[in-house]
Amino acid sequence: MSPESGASRITARSQIVLLIGLVLLWCLVWGQFSLLTVVSGVALAVIISLVFYLPAIDLSGRINIWRTIVFFLRLIVDIIGASLNVAWLVIDPRYKPSSAILAIALDTRSDIIMMFTAEAISLVPGSIVVDIDREESVLYVHVINVKTDEDLEKLRSSVFATEKRLVMGIGSKDDVWRVQQPNELTRSSVRRK
């Protein structure tokens, strides 16, 4: 597709990952892994990725299975705990609404890490991503039930922890180096005064 061999190799790899993902989803929907579903799944996946062409995702090519499992388990625990928290908040008669919108500058420069971090913190109740600045990788997060500045800082650090777990799972080497640095080094240029 593209003249440079490196770029086309990355494109081919992410296309293959996309194809495998689509076939897996097709098999999951049918609920069986027979020859028929796999063959029809491959045919459909090829047709779909040719007709609805997506820009290639820049996959890092590094995956740490153990860290990824840790990320998903922690996500499920977070969802359960925070869902119960929001449910209690709804029923609690003394609850006074007070919320905030925070600008959170992430370390990563990769689109897919940013997307998954946004998905994860939107799934965990209590925070919703309102807007994203892609160039500076800043997430604007709406938070519910915050009263003091300490609450805000607690949420900020929990978002950074989510990002760090995700980068340790599937991030590139560059991003791993970046999240391991102290915050002031990598974020000072982006963080608003």
């Binding site: 919108i101 919703i128 991503v129 807007d131 600045d133 800043v138 604007y140």
Partner: peptide, 27 residues
């Protein structure tokens, strides 16, 4: 949630008096 939140913020369907901090408006 993100699409609805974005549309809500842009069409001013939120009560700013309940926000204790709004860093999006600054930017």
């Amino acid at each position: 949630a993100h699409m609805v939140a974005r549309a809500a913020y842009r069409s001013d369907h939120l009560r700013r008096d309940l926000l204790i901090r709004d860093e999006l408006s600054v930017s």
